[in-house]
Amino acid sequence: MPVADDIKSSWADEVELEGGTLPPPTEVRENGLKIVTEYKFNEDDKKVKIVRTYKIEKRIVSKSIAIRKTWSKFGESINDKPGPDPATTIVGEDVYMQYVTSKEEDNKVEDESGIDKLKALGDKNVVKCRTCSGDHWTSKCPWKDTVLAGGKIPDLDKKGTATPSSATEVGKATGTTKYVPPGMRGDGAGKRPDSTSMPGSRRDDTTAIRVSNLSESTTETDLEELVKPFGPIQKLYLAKDKQTGQCKGFAYIHFKFRNDAAKAIATLNGHGYDHLILSVDWSKPPAHSN
């Protein structure tokens, strides 16, 4: 099989050869390879050196084939040199047989049709709520909060006229695409047992401070050393880029005591740290954090 490589000479060679006539083509045969070097002018009148490397293979073939191999060329090829002429024979780029299993294709078609079927059905009867067995997602169930509060599943069969109306009302609120946090939901908040029984759930935020304008090279250890003097720390979070692992420029520090946090804010806000001026504040606006 011939391997033809077109190698352009470097500009230095070209300069050297400039003006002179083309060097004669050379042909070197060594350890099973034939290396043919030719020089010619390309379209831009630049001298181009073409090096072609052929692998010489010996094959044992039947006599008839061997005789045919010695036939002289004719027609348009009569002036061709022995071996493939690069004008007519080109070694193509690698191609690979792509193995396909039509079974897979069939499955694909089935999958698509399945999705289409689902689309055609719409929301109806496709989903079933685990809480009330209605045709909506469990997370959108209007009875979700009720169940959490009361711990009993409302029986749809025994529902009076009042409950469906309230259900639709809630459905309006939760059915909208906009996310409403549980605490903000009109009736949901009141029913939540957590919100009243766990006043300490907010404690974290009240002692948390946000440090921003940190330099990229800041590490957790640096940050710890920075805030340690103010008091015991509950939790320390440094925002880091997922890919590079470098600091994204801000951090949250949860102190054990609010006083320490306030002290830290007072001291560190405007403090120069690693060529940047830190800005430190409560992690949430005071109005929300109380």
């Binding site: 099989m1 011939p2 094959r59 191999k69 036939w71 060329k73 004719f74 027609g75 348009e76 090829s77 009569i78 061709d80 022995p82 071996g83 493939p84 002429d85 007519t88 024979t89 070694v91």
Partner: peptide
């Protein structure tokens, strides 16, 4: 007509 092994053209029938 071509040699199938190396793609060398043997000739053309004009």
């Amino acid at each position: 007509v071509w040699y199938s092994l190396n793609g060398e053209r043997l000739g053309t029938f004009n």
